[in-house]
Simulated assay, not measured.
Amino acid sequence: MSQFIYVGTELELFAQAKNWKDYLRVLLRRYIKGNVLEVGAGIGSNTRLLCRSQYQKWICLEPDTQLFQGLESSIKANGIIDCFASNGTIDSLQEEQLFDTILYLDVLEHIKRDREEVIKASRHLKPDGNLIIVAPAHQWLFTPFDAAIGHYRRYNKQTLKAVLPDDIEIIKLNYLDCVGLLASLGNKLVLKQSQPTLKQIKVWDRFMVPISRKLDPIIGYSFGKSVLLVGRKKF
């Protein structure tokens, strides 16, 4: 069993962001296929939505023992078929375990040696398999909240591309949530909160995310508070 302890306290808060998670589901579902590995699955809030996609088997990898136990319970309680929780990290996998899809959803920023992590993940990705990364965008938006929940960094397109090994080709690289970026900037410059409140999360999710879903494609996904990368492993 892993001895990793997750320092963040925000997972339950952001589990309430139904519109945001549905936005991600719609964007990602076409790239999720076959045997899926979700790294850092947390309490399973992303799993519950994304498992509506087409897949054969879903492995939720979570290093924190307490979160892992909650994750197991969530999978059982929601009756998610062919979905299993595993307590560990990418290093816990057997060499022969290969996947068609590997997900890092707001996880890579928590990992100190991010490029090393992605190289290891690539070794467990089948040829033509998809690597999907969603991460907080723009280092200039880094706040005490990021530090409090264990973020080492935020990313832009260039820094996220830089962690990829040569055998991964980029098929999508976009910023998401343009309205949320403005809200995050306001928090950094004016409110200066170390953590958002549940009310703020609900306001962002209920009012800002739907607007971003409409505006993001219009502005060509050119700016936002999150960054999405989909890479495909070369043959």
Rank of each mutant, 00 (worst) to 15 (best):
L108A: 14
A148S: 05
L191Q: 13
T47W: 11
L93Y: 00
K157C: 10
A41P: 02
R153Y: 06
T197V: 08
I201M: 08
K192M: 14
N130E: 10
I80F: 08
V230L: 09
K192Y: 12
L198I: 10
I132Q: 03
D146K: 06
K57I: 04
W20Y: 13
L125Y: 12
K202S: 13
L191H: 12
S122K: 08
L13K: 09
Q66G: 06
L103N: 07
Y55R: 05
S74I: 14
L93I: 02
D82S: 13
N19V: 14
I90Y: 06
I168T: 06
C60R: 10
I218L: 14
L182W: 13
R115S: 15
S122C: 09
I111V: 12
K202N: 14
R206L: 00
M1W: 08
L98T: 06
F84T: 15
S222M: 10
V190H: 02
L37C: 15
T101D: 05
S194R: 15
N130H: 11
A85R: 10
D216K: 07
Q195N: 07
F235N: 10
K233C: 01
L27W: 04
P165E: 08
K120C: 04
L103F: 04
L228V: 00
P210K: 01
Q56K: 13
F145H: 01
P217R: 00
I43M: 12
I168V: 08
D205P: 07
S122E: 06
D100T: 07
C83I: 12
K21P: 03
V230E: 07
V7L: 04
G44Y: 10
N130M: 13
M208T: 05
K157T: 03
V190K: 09
D167G: 05
H151W: 02
L108C: 11
S2W: 05
Y155G: 08
F235G: 08
D177R: 07
I219T: 03
L27M: 04
I80R: 04
L189W: 06
K233H: 02
L181N: 10
E62G: 05
V118K: 00
R115W: 15
R153I: 04
I5T: 02
L50N: 14
I102S: 02
F223V: 02
S45M: 13
Q158D: 04
K192Q: 11
F145A: 02
F142Q: 10
P217H: 04
F84H: 15
W204I: 15
E116V: 07
A147F: 05
T197G: 09
V7Q: 09
T143Y: 03
I75R: 06
Y152N: 01
G88M: 11
G8M: 02
I81F: 03
V227N: 01
T47P: 08
G186D: 14
L61H: 09
D167C: 09
I168W: 05
A121G: 06
N156S: 04
N130P: 14
G70K: 15
Y221A: 00
I211H: 05
N19E: 10
I218C: 15
D216V: 11
I219Y: 01
W204G: 11
D22T: 08
R30A: 05
L215E: 11
L105C: 03
L191N: 12
D167P: 06
A137G: 05
H151I: 03
S212F: 12
I75T: 04
L27C: 00
G88L: 11
R232E: 01
E117I: 02
S45D: 12
P144M: 12
